[in-house]
Design a protein around this nucleic acid. Sequence first.
DNA 1: AATACATGTAATAAATTTATTACACATGAT
DNA 2: ATCATGTGTAATAAATTTATTACATGTATT
Lengths: 110, 110
Amino acid sequence: MDKKHHLNGDQLLAFFEALANPHRLKIISILDQERKYVSQLAREAEMSRPLLYMHLQKLEKAGIVTNEMELSHDGKAMKYYELASFDFRITPELIKEAAKTITFKKKEGK
Amino acid sequence: MDKKHHLNGDQLLAFFEALANPHRLKIISILDQERKYVSQLAREAEMSRPLLYMHLQKLEKAGIVTNEMELSHDGKAMKYYELASFDFRITPELIKEAAKTITFKKKEGK
DNA sequence: AATACATGTAATAAATTTATTACACATGAT
DNA sequence: ATCATGTGTAATAAATTTATTACATGTATT
């Protein structure tokens, strides 16, 4: 996810939507240091797991985080989330270009 | 509005919130060409004026557009909106920095 | 005076997002 | 067996955002 791969309109929109929430920005800032498993992240971000899941899914669909399941030393299933690297320049030109390929659809396939 | 003036958390959040809507991205792409007055913009963006006002206010609060009132040659009041220039690099580091100054508040003072 | 534009906003409805509650299951330690 | 920890999700409620409807005002033209 870097600026060579230019996003289409819907992808850019998903990116902005994912960033348009204070809790998700906080999640990003926590994950910037190191990957975390869900329960751990829930504690640090001070929110319930169900709510955290919802936020993580938005971030994931936008390509901002990824996850991998692992087994801990004692056999527990651990779901780790980590930050994807990204670096976008947001300019009017970028938005104008992306706007061409936005599909105005009702929200369900999200 | 350029990257030398680093935004605080709330400002960055307002920026993302303003961009997290397909109609507002379209408005931006229309204004990128030249300034428009409200009724004109409403026709081009294919939306009602009341709705357009709502979108414009979000964009304005985020510093993405500005407006100026003028009198047309025939004496009508015309409210023109134009795009502010902006150029931000969105990276995990930027978000991490901004997250420090986000105030988690209920939405009313918007 | 009626028509055609323009601005502006209040009240309401509809849709979406955000948040909570209550569950389910599994493993390891006490 | 019970507790503490982990995962996962369905159902619901609350809050916010988005959209519509119905108005108000004003100027210039027909």
